[in-house]
């Protein structure tokens, strides 16, 4: 492979059309492991659609998304069903409108995330039904992994609570913890800071840095909260009406005239710029 060393995820000329509407237009982007890449842009810029194309929920009209997996080699994500994107390509996402299993507890949510490994260890339930040692070990390991992330994300105390009853910010954390239990190489977070208070948002920053620096995970971020984006991003890609209008480090983006134009064209940007100034 020519670009084996370059990027963890390679997006090439991705285009997504819904009827006459072009949600993403000829987008190319490289994502590195161990780095935080943010996708920003006004509402309706095509950010979530982009995630949906990456994770197999939409089939892109044209273009390719290649994951350079250390174990499985180069994988074309746009050709895979969504569950294989997570299972084989180790690309896991969270959702803008949180999707937890509301009647199940926090712990159960995290165990479900380890379904594939556990199912394999249980030999399609046979070893599990018989209570064989091999399954018990796998089950304990799963509990340990869940507990590790629960502790890291300060969720341990509520491990046995149904997730449907939790506050919004806590649900966001549970969703991230659940995604981490899949052992992703690349984790795609869709507006993880939405609805978080300043303290929670600072904790999110720490977590994202921890994941990239300590666990060398690739992080992709869709976010409106510029406090998060500018502080933690290694690389930022700006979308507007499906087109990539700029790309670079936070400093480069902040001074990019194209970006300023795209954002100031809208009223709602005022509070974001205020935040940046502050």
């Amino acid at each position: 492979m020519s670009n084996q060393q370059s990027h963890l995820l390679e997006v090439k000329n991705l285009t997504m059309r819904f009827g006459g509407l072009t949600a993403i237009n000829d987008l190319s982007l490289g994502i590195e492991g161990g780095k935080i890449t943010s996708i920003i842009g006004p509402n309706g810029a095509g950010k979530t659609t982009f995630f949906n194309c990456l994770t197999g929920f939409y089939k892109p009209t044209t273009g390719s998304v290649q994951m350079n997996h250390p174990e499985h080699g180069a994988l074309l994500l746009e050709k895979m069903p969504s569950h294989l994107v997570a299972r084989k390509a180790s690309v896991v996402r969270t959702f803008q409108n949180i999707r937890l299993f509301p009647n199940m507890t926090v712990l159960e949510n995290l165990i479900v995330a380890q379904h594939n490994a556990l199912q394999k260890a249980s030999h399609f339930s046979l070893a599990g039904l018989l209570g064989l040692a091999s399954y018990r070990q796998a089950s304990e390991a799963a509990m340990e992994k869940a507990e590790m992330w629960l502790t890291r994300l300060k969720l341990r105390d509520i491990a046995n609570m149904p997730t449907g009853n939790l506050s919004y910010g806590t649900q966001r954390r549970v969703e991230i913890a659940r995604a981490l239990c899949v052992d992703p190489l690349l984790i795609c977070l869709d507006e993880p800071a939405a609805g978080l208070n300043p303290r929670e948002s600072a904790e999110l920053n720490d977590l994202l840095l921890y994941l990239t620096r300590e666990h060398h995970k690739g992080v992709m971020l869709i976010e409106h909260d510029m406090n998060v984006v500018m502080k933690v991003s290694d690389h930022i890609c700006v979308l507007n009406f499906g087109n990539k209008i700029a790309e670079g480090t936070p400093e480069q983006i902040q001074n990019n005239p194209e970006v300023i134009k795209a954002y100031l064209g809208e009223e709602e940007i005022e509070d974001t710029t205020e935040e940046e100034a502050a």
Binding site: S82, V92, R99
Partner: peptide, 21 residues
């Protein structure tokens, strides 16, 4: 067992299940 948890998870949210592999 994993299969039982998976049943309930599918009942709760299929899309999330797919996203988890």
């Amino acid at each position: 067992l994993p299969v039982g948890l998976a049943w309930e998870a599918v009942r709760e949210d299929e899309v999330a299940c797919k996203a988890l592999g």
